[in-house]
Amino acid sequence: MAQGKPKLAVWKFASCDGCQLSLLDCEDELLAVAGAVEIASFPEATRATVKGPYDISLVEGSITTPHDEQRIHSIRRSSRFLVTIGACATAGGIQALRNFKDVNEFTSLVYAHPDYIQTLKKSTPVTDHVFVDFELRGCPINKYQLIEVLSALLHGRKPNTPPHAVCMECKQRGAVCVMVAHAIPCLGPVTQAGCGALCPSYARGCYGCFGPKETPNTASLAAGWAELGVSNRDLMRAFRGFNTYAEPFRRESEAHEK
C-alpha cells in the first residue's frame, strides 16, 4: 500500500445498494475500518469525495448501460485493487434475467418513451469488462467476509473465503440437512459458502445467493430435486435467481427451459 492511509472508494452500478450498506452494517468494526483506511468515495455514507487514484475500489452492481461500460474502465484505471462486491457485480445480478429475453420488448412495455432508455442488451458482471482482483460473492455480501477481504488486502495476505459448498457450513453448525430430512429442495450442495448456512438453519432450502461453488454438479442436484417432485419449470426458476448469469446456473436453468 502507498504511504499514509490507503484510500478506499466504493462505486455503484446497477444494484440495490445492499452490499455497500453491508459496510455501514459493520457497526462494531466500522471505526476500525475508518481507522485503517481513508474513505475516499462512499455515496451511501458521505457526499465528500477524494481524488484518485485509490488503493482499494469496492464495486457494487452490474454493467447495464453504455455509460457504465465507460465508467468501469475509468474506475479500473484509477484503482490499485478492484474488488467486486455482491452478486450483481460478480455475476450480473437478478437484473440479468433480462439476458434470457429481448430487452427492447421490456422497455417498450414499461416506458412511455422507450427511445429515452439507453441500455445494453445484457446485464453483465464487472469481470466481463475489466480485470478484477477479487470477487466477493453474496446477495448481499456477508459483512464478516468483507472485513476479512479488506484486512487481507491491507496486510498482504490471501482472504479466507473458501469456495466450497454451503453444506460445509451447515455441518459445521450442526444443522440438519433440509433436503435429506425434510425433502426441501436446497441449492446448498452447488452453492458457495459464505452466508453461514443461514436459510438451512431456519429449515429453508438454500436460494443460491453466493453463486456456484467450485465444480458444481448442478445436473445431479437437479435430478435429485426432480425426485422430490420439483417440476422442470420450478427447476428453471430455482437457477434463475440472483446469480442466474453465472455460467453453471445459467446452463442448468436453460436445460429446464423446455
Binding site: A165, P189, V190, N217
Partner: peptide, 13 residues
C-alpha cells in the same frame, strides 16, 4: 462422478 455433488456431506457426517 456424474452423481457426486462433491458437497462434502459424506465426510462431515
Amino acid at each position: 462422478a456424474e452423481r457426486c455433488l462433491s458437497c462434502a456431506n459424506c465426510t462431515l457426517v
